[in-house]
């Protein structure tokens, strides 16, 4: 029962996500068009003759009106063709896929640790609210968030790579590496990312659950003789799930999109490093492609959060 309403809501949300992604693609395309500089010029260099420039422009279709170039770009992407990098003439899609996989691996490692840890710490903070445990958890989480990620990164390298020599300082990974080797390589960057995103999720979990703890049904549970942890787990948490999922998804998106600095510090061959490299080379097609992938990750994860919130609401799942 009620499936139709929920399906309709979810379909609407997905349609909205697709629309949003299209709008972002327009923005990205327009943004890179506004940038000064000429692609043909940057390929051929300052010494190129006007005739050579003109020929290359025609070849690349740069003389066509902007909307035609936009649709050509868009249809290319829909067919999996992200274009060619200007700097080294390589196919962007094939160069990116390995990088994207690396970034997703790092993000997943950080997420697998940080999400359960943040929620657990948040629930513990609620259980011992305003007490010493709550304050210790909050203090630690806030401190780790306040420190910039490059600082945390270098600190981790100093302690665990240089002094203790437990983990490598540079997180280089190859295709031939085994899973465990890879895992060992990403321990430090994943820890740095975990420390960065932990507090936000933990504080939000704490706030959302505390908000629910004011409800009359919590008192009902208390008057049934339930213990505090059981009350939090069974009665408060399920009703706080929607805001928690929201903040978790935002942080997951950050793990994918916001890793640029951490990847550079640990020399990790992910999307972030790839992006930074090509920004400095003014390689517009690469910047466009990476921007679009980042946007897609953001929009998808937020869409998942919204859909999860819809599914978590019993009023929507089971209408009257």
């Amino acid at each position: 029962m009620g499936g139709a309403t929920v399906l309709k809501l979810i379909a609407q949300r997905i349609a909205l996500g697709v629309l949003l992604l299209l709008a972002v693609s327009v923005l990205i395309f327009a943004g890179t068009q506004i940038l000064p500089g000429d692609v043909a010029q940057s390929i051929l260099g300052q010494a190129a003759t006007p005739q050579a420039l003109e020929n290359l422009r025609r070849e690349l279709g740069l003389n066509d009106p902007a909307y035609i170039r936009y649709f050509r770009w868009l249809f290319g992407i829909l067919q999996g063709d992200l274009g060619t990098a200007l700097s080294n003439n390589r196919d962007i899609a094939s160069a990116l896929s390995g990088r994207l996989a690396n970034t997703l691996f790092l993000a997943a490692c950080a997420a697998v640790v940080s999400v359960p840890l943040a929620i657990l710490l948040g629930l513990l903070a609620v259980r011992y609210r305003n007490g010493i445990i709550d304050k210790a958890i909050s203090g630690f989480a806030l401190a780790s968030t306040s420190l910039p990620e490059f600082f945390i990164g270098y600190l981790l390298i100093l302690v665990f790579a240089v002094k203790l020599q437990w983990f490598p300082a540079s997180s280089t990974v190859y295709d031939s590496m085994g899973f465990l080797q890879r895992l060992q390589a990403v321990v430090l960057p994943a820890s740095a990312l975990t420390l960065v995103v932990l507090a936000h999720m933990m504080r939000m979990t704490r706030a959302a659950v505390l908000n629910v703890m004011q409800s009359a049904y919590i008192e009902t549970a208390e008057l049934k003789g339930l213990g505090p942890l059981k009350i939090i787990r069974r009665h408060a948490f399920p009703n706080a799930i929607a805001p928690i999922i929201n903040v978790v998804m935002l942080n997951l998106a950050f793990l994918v999109v916001g890793v640029v600095v951490v990847e550079v510090i640990f020399v990790y061959p992910g999307m972030g490093q790839y992006l930074v490299d090509h920004v400095s080379k003014r390689d517009v097609p690469v910047v466009q492609a990476v921007g679009l992938i980042f946007a897609a990750v953001y929009i998808t994860l937020n869409m998942v959060a919204d859909i999860a919130a819809i599914l978590a609401n019993p009023r929507l799942r089971h209408p009257k």
């Binding site: 409800s215 009359a216 049904y217 008192e219 009902t220 549970a221 208390e222 008057l223 049934k224 003789g225 339930l226 213990g227 069974r234 009665h235 399920p238 009703n239 019993p314 009023r315």
Partner: peptide
């Protein structure tokens, strides 16, 4: 107190609408 609440003495609240947890089925509660 927990041993006794819900076993020897139970409570019926003014607003049952607020006193039931919206996330669980009535029987479970």
């Amino acid at each position: 107190l927990r041993q006794m609440r819900g076993r020897e003495v139970c409570y019926v609240a003014q607003s049952a609408a607020a006193a039931f947890n919206p996330a669980h089925k009535l029987m479970d509660q």
